[in-house]
């Protein structure tokens, strides 16, 4: 596979990269662009640490070839909110002090934000189903669930 020149949009910025089209998006983000919020965990979509948004929806970036992005827009944890204007999921994560070691947390937050964008008032079972593909070796699952429910309530305005 030959190296190709392509432009990709990440967090509303356009980047030019010269990479093989089959390179997983995660590699491009971390090694080519220095965007290290998405983490490498398993490399086979089994852990969720690399979760980013493509056109607003959660995608395991270790599984998506950068050449398959086309004109789709990528968002990482770095583009979800800012310190002055946090995303509602980030606010809830801080309130519930979810993180322990923190390695999986960017993926967890991106997955939760994707869930709430399509289902702003998920049931407990739906939260469990949506978050089951994101592993946390520290076992912060109770706090993750509480934070997602808290974020959903904020979105409902209560």
């Amino acid at each position: 596979m030959k190296v190709s020149h392509m432009e990709i949009t990440v967090n509303d910025q356009t980047y030019s990269v010269d990479v093989e089209p089959e390179m997983p998006l995660l590699w491009v983000l971390r090694d080519e662009l220095g965007i290290t919020g998405p983490k490498y965990g398993c490399g086979i979509a089994q852990c969720g640490a690399c979760t980013v948004h493509v056109n607003g929806y959660a995608v395991r970036s270790c599984q998506l070839a950068v050449g398959d992005l086309g004109s789709s827009k990528v968002s990482t944890i770095e583009g979800l909110g800012t310190p002055d204007s946090l995303h509602v999921v980030q606010e809830s994560w801080i309130e519930h002090q979810v993180a322990q070691c923190g390695y999986c947390q960017s993926g967890q937050i991106m997955q939760a934000a994707s869930l709430l964008s399509t289902n702003p008032n998920p049931s407990d079972d739906q939260i469990d189903a949506a978050m089951s593909g994101n592993l946390c070796r520290c076992g912060t699952y109770p706090r993750i669930k509480a934070a997602v429910k808290s974020a959903a309530k904020k979105l409902q305005g209560s």
């Binding site: 979509a45 995608v59 599984q63 070839a65 997955q111 399509t118 289902n119």
Partner: peptide, 27 residues
């Protein structure tokens, strides 16, 4: 769509990328 999209892990690939499914255990 109600919980987690199949395409979160089973990402769309190019038609001509025939090596996409060679990794055991990957989606």
């Amino acid at each position: 769509a109600e919980t987690i999209l199949c395409s979160t892990c089973h990402t769309n690939k190019s038609e001509d990328w025939d090596k996409a499914n060679t990794v055991n255990h990957a989606a």
